[in-house]
Write a protein that binds this DNA or RNA. Structure first.
Lengths: 345, 345
DNA sequence: CAGCAGGATGGGAGCGCTCCCAAACTTGAT
DNA sequence: ATCAAGTTTGGGAGCGCTCCCATCCTGCTG
C-alpha cells in the first residue's frame, strides 16, 4: 500500500508533484509560480517554468477547482423559449464576443440552453453548487426570476438587456431609445412627413424603449405624436405584415415606417408590395437589428445596428470584474447604436 | 486538529458524507445509488434517495471528475477562420441539437472557438489532458489536422461533414449529392432545359459533392453535362453575382441555375435583376441551405434544406456512444436532404 | 445447526491541486 | 558577531468523490 506517487498521473500527464521534483522544489512553490504569486524568487521561478515546459505540464482543472473552490468556468444561459436569438446571427456573434474575452482570462464557457422547467431547475441546482463562477444571461423573458435566484445564491451574473428601466441586476444593453430616435430623425431628415411605427412586444423593455425613441424623435422634430401612427406588433414577420396593412388603412397618407425589428420590416415590405406602394418612393422603411435579412431585402433595408459582439465582450468583462472584485455595485452599461443607411429610405 | 468533516461543504452545500449520515449508511452506498449501481438493496436505495431529496444534494462535479478521472464534459470546437457557421442560423441550430442530447446525458457542453494558432495550441493541450471526454468538430477547414491529433491522443471525436470521400474520422454529414440532384431534377421536372450551376469552393468536399449531384441529376435525365454551364464560385454572395453574369454571357439561353448556397443565389438573383431577367419566368433559381435569406428573397427561393438540428443530435449521440463503448469502428452517418419549393422555381 | 456462497455495505486510500503554517534562509542594523 | 524582521520555501491537511477490498449479512444446503 501507499507506494507513494511517482510516474505520471492516470492520464499519462505529468502532475504538479513531478514538476516540483524535476525543478527540485516543493509543490507549494510550483503552485505559486503557476498562479503568479509574487512570493517566489526570480531564480526559482525560472527553474520551475523550465520544468513545466520540459514536461509539458498542464494543470488539472478538476483538481484545481476542487481544491480552490472555484470552477474557472462561466455559464451562458439561453432560455430557449424566448430564443429570438436563434434567428439572427445575434447568438453567434454575441458568443464570439464573450468567448474572446473569456479565452483570454482562461475561463471555460459553458453553454446551457433552458427549454423546459425541468432544465431550468437543473440549471438552478448547478449554479447554486458553485459549478460555475458566474453566469451570463441572454435573451431573458419579461419577468424571468433567474437573476433574482442568482443574487440570492450570491452568484455573480450579468444580463444582456434589461427587464425594466429600474433594472437592479447588472446588465449590458444597447441604446434602444437612441437607435429608434436616430431612425426617426433620419426619416424626417429625408423629407418624410408622416412617420408611422410598428412596435415589438411591449412586455419587453427593449420594445418599449424603441417606442419611446420613436416618440422622442418626433418630438425633437416638433412633430405631433399621433396614436394612429402606432401599431402594436410582436416582433414577428406576420405582425409586421398585418401591422402595415392596418396602418395603411388607417393612414393612407403615411410616407415612412419605422419597424422595431428587421423581421417586421420584411413583413411590412410585403404588405407594401401587395398594396402597390413602392419602397422607398412611396414609403420609406427602416428596421432594427441590421440582420442578414436587412441586407438581402429588396431594396436593401436601412436598419439600426447594435454592436452585438461588443456587447458580448462587455458582458464577459463585467462578469469577470464581478467575480474577482465583487465591488462597485452592479455594472450597468448601455452601448450606442448606429444607423446603417441603405436604399429603403 | 483535523476537526473531522461535519457540516456542509465550503459552499454551504451538502456533501456525499452528509447524505450518508442522514440516510444512516456509508459513503460508498450513497455513491452507488447516485451512479445507479445495481448492487444496492431496494430499501436502502429508497432511504438514500429520500435523504438526497431532503438535503437537496447535488454531486460536486469537480470532485467527481477528479476521483473518477472523467470530465463529464464535451467540447464543441469551432475553428473561427472557417466559420461560415457564423452567418446562417446553422450554428445556433446545430447547437440546439447537440445541447438537447447532451443535457439528457447530463454532460456539459464546452464551447471553444479557435481563431488563432495560439488558441489551437491551447485547445490541443486541453483535449490531451482529459479535460473533456470527447470533442465535437464543426465546420472544419480543408485539411485541418485536429481530427488526427485527437485520434493520436485517443480522444473520442465526431465531426460535422467530411473532408473527403475517404474520411476516416467519425462523422455526421448530409447527403449533398442527393440534395443537389434533387434540385436539378426538380428544375428539369419543371420543364427547364438548360440548367447551369454555381459551385462552392471546390477545396471543400461538400462543394464537390454538390457539383457531383448536379451532374448526376443531369445524367439521370439524359441531359448533356456542358462545362459551359458550370461556374466555379466560392460560396460568397459576390461570387454568386459574378458567376451569374459570367454564365449569362456564356450561355444567354440558360433558363435555370442551381446555386450551391443561398448566399450565392442571392448574388445571382441580383445579377439576374440587373440583366432584366425575371425569376422564375426567365430563369428559375434554386439554392442550398434553406437559410433565412431564402425565405426573404423576392421571390422566395426554392432551396435544399439540411436537417441541421438532427445533425447536431446525431453528432452528440455518436460521440456519447464512442465515449462509452469505444467500439464498432468510427460512426459514419449521412442524413438526407429535402427540397423546399418556393416561388423561385 | 454448522457451513458456505453471494449479495450488500462500510470506509480507507487516493485523485491533483491550493491553502496556509512553520521552517529555513536573507538582510541589515546593532 | 548577533538578532530582529522580513522573504522564500516545504509540505501536511483537506477539497468531495469513486474505487475497491474487507466485512457483514442473508438464505440455503447438508
Amino acid at each position: 500500500m501507499g507506494m507513494g506517487r511517482r510516474g505520471a498521473g492516470r492520464n499519462g500527464r505529468p502532475t504538479l508533484e513531478q514538476v516540483a521534483a524535476r525543478a527540485g522544489v516543493g509543490r507549494g512553490t510550483v503552485s505559486r509560480v503557476i498562479n503568479g504569486s509574487p512570493r517566489v524568487s526570480d531564480r526559482t521561478r525560472t527553474v520551475v517554468q523550465q520544468a513545466i515546459a520540459d514536461l509539458g505540464y498542464v494543470p488539472h482543472r478538476a483538481a484545481r477547482a476542487l481544491a480552490a473552490n472555484r470552477a474557472d468556468a462561466v455559464a451562458l444561459v439561453v432560455p430557449e423559449t424566448e430564443g429570438r436569438l436563434f434567428n439572427d446571427p445575434y447568438f453567434s456573434v454575441i458568443i464570439r464576443g464573450i468567448s474572446a474575452v473569456l479565452a483570454d482570462a482562461d475561463m471555460q464557457l459553458l453553454l446551457t440552453l433552458i427549454r423546459s422547467p425541468k432544465e431550468r431547475q437543473r440549471f438552478a441546482e448547478y449554479a447554486a453548487g458553485n459549478r460555475v463562477d458566474g453566469v451570463l444571461l441572454v435573451s431573458l423573458h419579461g419577468e424571468d426570476p433567474l437573476p433574482e435566484q442568482l443574487t440570492e445564491f450570491g452568484i455573480p451574473g450579468v444580463m444582456n438587456g434589461r427587464r425594466s428601466a429600474a433594472e437592479t441586476f447588472p446588465y449590458v444593453d444597447v441604446d434602444n431609445v437612441g437607435g429608434a430616435q436616430l431612425a426617426v430623425e433620419h426619416l424626417i431628415g429625408r423629407g418624410r412627413s408622416t412617420v408611422a411605427t410598428i412596435t415589438g412586444s411591449l412586455d419587453m423593455y427593449g420594445a418599449r424603449s424603441r417606442l419611446d425613441g420613436y416618440r422622442e424623435g418626433l418630438r425633437a422634430a416638433g412633430r405631433p405624436d399621433d396614436e394612429d401612427l402606432v401599431h402594436y406588433g410582436d416582433y414577428s414577420e406576420e405582425s409586421g405584415y398585418n401591422g402595415m396593412r392596418e396602418l395603411l388603412r388607417r393612414r393612407p397618407d403615411l410616407d415612412a415606417v419605422f419597424c422595431a425589428s428587421d423581421l417586421m420590416a420584411a413583413g411590412a415590405r410585403q404588405a407594401l408590395r401587395e398594396a402597390g406602394r413602392s419602397v422607398p418612393d412611396d414609403v420609406a422603411l427602416v428596421g432594427f437589428d441590421d440582420s442578414a435579412i436587412a441586407r438581402h431585402m429588396d431594396p436593401p433595408l436601412t436598419s439600426v445596428r447594435q454592436p452585438i459582439e461588443e456587447m458580448g465582450r462587455a458582458m464577459a468583462r463585467a462578469l469577470l470584474v464581478e467575480i474577482n472584485d465583487a465591488g462597485d455595485g452592479p455594472a450597468r452599461q448601455v452601448l450606442p447604436t448606429e444607423l446603417m443607411r441603405r436604399a429603403s429610405s
